[in-house]
Design a protein around this nucleic acid. Structure first.
Lengths: 69, 69
DNA sequence: CACTAATGACAAATATACTAGACTTTTAGT
DNA sequence: ACTAAAAGTCTAGTATATTTGTCATTAGTG
């Protein structure tokens, strides 16, 4: 339940050569929101997840499906 | 932007032989929330979407990826 | 060293997802 | 037509996602 970081998202972002700030601006949220999503222990909206996927060229299943539940 | 119903979810639910109330109880939300998700114009949390997918045996991409955006 | 960019963490304020209740309308069965 | 279950709508309240601001840390660079 604790410390459930979204490492796949972080990897996809860095692979795309984007900073947290870049991604935040691309999907029109604050940098804090990106930090929170990557840090886990957080429950973002589906629309935000979809926007992030589109910017990073990934799918929802790739970035937001938890295998350890 | 208007009237963007999630017909795929509704189809998957009925295919599973579940009412809105059944699905709501299965994922521990109110029936209103299920109504809202199916009716579109709504932005549910990713956790709720994942829970719904698990109950209905579907993936996030199948139920929550909008093709018309 | 000083400077900047990037990340991570904390807290208060705001926007909105979700709840709870009551009600109307549709759908399906007899 | 009658009935009941299921679906849809509205409103007010509560929980929480998201914002805004600030500060600390790390890594690179002149």
């Amino acid at each position: 339940m604790t410390n459930n970081k979204n490492l796949k998202l972080k990897a996809a972002r860095t692979l795309a050569g984007m900073t947290q700030n870049d991604l935040a601006q691309s999907v029109n949220v604050s940098r804090q929101t990106i930090v929170a999503v990557e840090s886990g222990n957080y429950n973002p909206s589906i629309n935000l997840c979809v926007d992030i996927c589109k910017v990073l060229g990934c799918t929802l299943d790739e970035l937001f499906w938890q295998t350890d539940m």
